[in-house]
Design a protein around this nucleic acid. Structure first.
Lengths: 213, 213
DNA sequence: TAACATATGTTAGAGATGCTAACTTTATGA
DNA sequence: TCATAAAGTTAGCATCTCTAACATATGTTA
């Protein structure tokens, strides 16, 4: 943005079809635009994001994105979907090494949920914070459901229930609400402000204990 | 919006300076614009809100608002502040008639919190859902703190603590997080979707019990 | 290999928006 | 009463989203 370079290599992990440096075609503009979107959403906030900015960052004209996305919303959706993939894989990674059936696994999921909100507040806001009509995409709902199912599975094991029963669903709903709200509040004001100096892990353990009996 | 009337009387509870009908001056354009903003934010969503729309709805030119508000954000802030006033007074009204020290008072606060999110999802989103930079106004923070203090006072009475102690603050933080998250989730998907058919009052009572011991 | 089809860029521009400048009309109060 | 301030208006600039028409690269097939 601050330099005027054009067509810089921005592949973000995908293989460009040409190895050349300044071709007419970009190589993988779609991925580059998603990465630019992610970056701008975090830097300036979702509300200030503009397609034009992303184009400047990726070094293409302002009409280029419309070969890859239907409109601005579709660009944002793509960035959010990418973020959810990262989110889910980190969640699963956080579970490794913790014994099955341990409430600590539920705590770990919560920790990772909050971490995501703090690490990528812009993407988090886009996914969860907006008005219903903002981004209503079935793929987003499905992704959220998948994450939720990971939590339900852990709760079922903790409660020794035979699968995802009504009671598991209820506890999951309560825990999810809590972690969700906690993420919003912490993203807004941090842990140590206004005389609240709680340890995050303590809080989550406390709540997990209360909710799992 | 659907009719082409201009300068319709839109006073929204404030006394216009003239009783006339079609004056050059509006009477109380500021209040009319705030009401128009509120209405549009609920109808089309906060992201689709435009100053121009509000002007059309209030029947004035697109430059008129800038005599009353610094910019678009200030208009939204004004609408949110008004919403928070309504919210707080309903919260206090909900407490009337419930005996002091009863956990039911905490439940009532939660009910009212969730109700607000469902009744005015647009304003709720603007206040809580946005990116940190979206609307960062000290008046909004102060208003939120006031509502939070109402909750803390009730919790202190329930726990028989001598005022707002560290423990009260901790429980309040947990409860607030829960209700906050619950509001977001319900606003997005409702209570009865996806096989979740819980009774709202039951849920809140359950959580209040768990959190207040 | 030539030539066509398709994918992926570009420039130009329409229409909407946020906001400012300069002007006009009404209200206020010395 | 009349100057001044408050609160409207029109005109217009810069920017934004998105489309149309055109240009260039890629790759498939005769």
């Amino acid at each position: 943005m601050s330099n005027g370079q054009k067509n810089q290599d921005y592949d973000a992990g995908s293989q460009p079809r040409t190895t050349g440096k300044k071709t007419y075609h970009h190589g993988d503009l779609r991925a580059a635009l998603i990465e630019a979107t992610r970056q701008l959403v975090e830097e300036k906030g979702p509300d200030s994001f503009s397609v034009s900015d992303a184009c400047r960052l990726a070094g293409v004209s302002t009409a280029a994105p419309y070969k890859h996305f239907k409109n601005k919303t579709e660009m944002l959706v793509a960035a959010v979907l990418e973020g959810m993939l990262r989110h889910r894989s980190r969640m699963l990674a956080a579970l490794e090494g913790i014994p099955e059936g341990s409430p600590e696994r539920v705590t770990a999921i919560g920790m990772e949920y909050v971490s995501f909100a703090l690490r990528e507040p812009g993407i988090f806001s886009l996914k969860f914070g907006g008005f219903t009509d903002r981004i209503a995409d079935p793929r987003l709902e499905e992704g959220g459901q998948q994450s939720f199912n990971i939590l339900l599975t852990e709760i079922a094991k903790c409660l020794d229930e035979p699968g995802i029963t009504e009671e598991v669903r209820r506890r999951g709903f309560l825990l999810w609400s809590f972690v969700h709200g906690l993420s919003f509040i912490l993203r807004e004001q941090g842990l140590a402000e206004k005389g609240q100096e709680f340890d995050l892990h303590d809080l989550l353990e406390d709540v997990a204990r209360r909710m799992l009996n």
